[in-house]
Design a protein around this nucleic acid. Structure first.
Lengths: 344, 344
DNA sequence: CTGAAAGCGCTTACAG
DNA sequence: CTGAAAGCGCTTACAG
């Protein structure tokens, strides 16, 4: 092992002698003794060790493993979208709790494989991938094992051998609709995500399950599948509200879509919640500051980030997880966008 | 300089001989020749150099400076708030464009001074501080110069000797109000930030300047100073709208406050923009997905992050900036929350 | 351009 | 617990 000097030159004391040579002379000991202290080897008296350590730090010498804190990498598809920040907060929080720093990157800066290479050669603790698609070759690269990897809420089903963390989409969606049913709604529309994404499909099935358990018909005209975004939400909700017999409540598969539903209601002249109840899925910061504040199914994004980090640390410590897929529970937050249907 | 092996042991070929010794033997050259190649010194024929380089990388030997990409640190007060993500995106974007990675942290994990120490001893390129307060001792620590620092949009006036990047708050606010004046509004309220923050004060003065240039009176009852957040925005706007003669337009000093104004309008039964126009300041992602979408003064957060990063890189490269304070221009985005006042 | 020789800084094995 | 001695891997200075 090799001693490093501080990088910025400030403490670059005379290089005419070796760093240990200098300290050895000042401490009045031999170079081998200093060497043992630097490398934390036994065979040095506690007083001598103490004296040498003081001198070492006074000279700005650092043991390599102390020089840089350990790092985890969190890689997002891009730094956008309503929940990215909350996930990042969870990761940074859990990592910093154990003194680990967090490198944030995107797959637009480097492809997944290059991030894994970079993390590995930098000696990172591991990599958390918050991306919806993992190619075949990325999956192989991940499993080749150079560096520990955890997948966070991937929208496509990941390989079972890669640890991944997600959310109980089906149960969350069912709970949202059960809330509307309990309020007395019987004509409930859904602005759904694309059924090609497992998360979107799970939420749609949760919606259907709740209706079916309540003995309500499965009315395809009340379901609009769109992208998880605002403008698609506006368009889909406008269509639903223009129906001859519009729904009295709409369940949106994401906060962005739900904000679109609110905007559609405004345009079509539906008061929320007086004439239309709205339930959202995600419950990111925007849900609470919408007008009216949205009743929403909370995805525990921050907790997701924390759990992913702790799982990663666990794998990095050599504990192969016995369960590789974990889903955290959602919870319904009731705010002001839902109410019983108007008496008809 | 010392050669490093790949960290994860995969390429840890026999340690019975030195790394250079092995490569030297395989390349059929002497150890000194390999040493010159590793350290990029002259005095080696191009063919020999090439052959040795191939062998070096085949063995997974890396020059220390190639092993870890350079890093910048971006430190936020916390990972929350509407513009944090956009700033982070700008930093990551500008850094990754030149192959530099980005370590993200918060001052709750470590105080500012500890971050500077960590960045310095890790050999980071520099630190971008996105925090509103810098204590006296932090300022001294920053100026002691161990590692380059750039301040991003600090709400209190930073020391002139520390480079800082902000936004033209006064001009932006004035432009927002001029937009309302041009629509014909003459009774304009403001949900302002605390005047104790320079950004809040500048926006308030911009508001006043526009009114005064239009020859309108300075009516203190139309100005409510609050925190830059949603619930304060709701409360302040409710007060304004309950006035005997309520304003026909409100300028909010932040997106969060503006969302609160929309909610207050809903509660008090004011249609936006029919009976009340609303202009916001920030124009983060939430402004475009509000209902109705908000007319807003855009702070170029992502660009702020990019400029801060480039400034930092510049300082790190040894160019002392001649100008240490830079303010980026805002721009008004007109959406659907503003319209001429209802004919009275 | 190349390498034998000398040297340097650190580590290891061992004697006291 | 401590250090003299031997050794190792890399670098430097220089001869060819």
């Amino acid at each position: 092992m090799v001693v490093q000097e501080r990088v910025n030159g400030r403490a670059a004391s005379s290089r005419r002698h070796g760093l240990m040579t200098v300290v050895a002379r000042e401490a009045g000991v031999s170079v081998p003794t200093v060497s043992k202290v630097v490398n934390k080897k036994p065979g040095v008296g506690p007083d001598t060790r103490e004296r040498i350590e003081v001198l070492l730090s006074a000279h700005g010498f650092l043991r390599p493993e102390d020089a840089r804190p350990q790092q985890v990498y969190v890689i997002f598809r891009d730094l956008a979208g309503p929940y990215t920040l909350e996930v990042a907060r969870g990761v940074v929080d859990a990592a910093s709790a154990v003194g680990i720093d967090c490198v944030t990157g995107t797959t637009s800066a480097r492809p997944v494989g290059a991030w894994l290479d970079a993390a590995e050669s930098a000696g990172a603790v591991g990599v958390i991938l918050v991306i919806s698609m993992l190619t075949e070759s990325d999956q192989r690269r991940v499993m080749s094992g150079g560096v520990p990897v955890v997948l966070l809420d991937p929208l496509n089903e990941p390989d079972h051998r890669i640890p991944s963390i997600g959310v109980t989409n089906w149960r969350g969606a069912r709970a949202a609709v059960e809330h509307l049913l309990a309020l007395g709604h019987t004509r409930i529309g859904m602005v759904a995500g694309r059924p090609s994404s497992p998360a979107g499909a799970a939420r749609l099935h949760g919606f259907r399950a709740a209706l079916s358990e309540a003995g309500l018909p499965d009315d395809a005209s009340l379901i609009k599948a769109t992208d998880f975004d605002y403008s698609e939400g506006v368009r889909a909700a406008c269509t639903l509200l223009s129906l001859p017999e519009p729904p009295t409540a709409i369940f949106a598969a994401s906060d962005s879509q739900a904000l679109g539903v609110l905007e559609a209601a405004r345009r079509e002249g539906f008061a929320v919640p007086g004439q239309l109840s709205v339930v959202s899925f995600d419950d990111t910061a925007v849900a609470a500051t919408a007008s009216p504040p949205l009743t929403a199914v909370r995805q525990p994004f921050e907790e997701l980030g924390r759990v992913a980090t702790r799982t990663l640390l666990d794998v990095a410590a050599g504990h192969q997880p016995t369960v590789t897929r974990m889903e955290l529970a959602t919870a319904l937050t009731v705010r002001e966008s839902t109410a019983p249907p108007a008496a008809s």
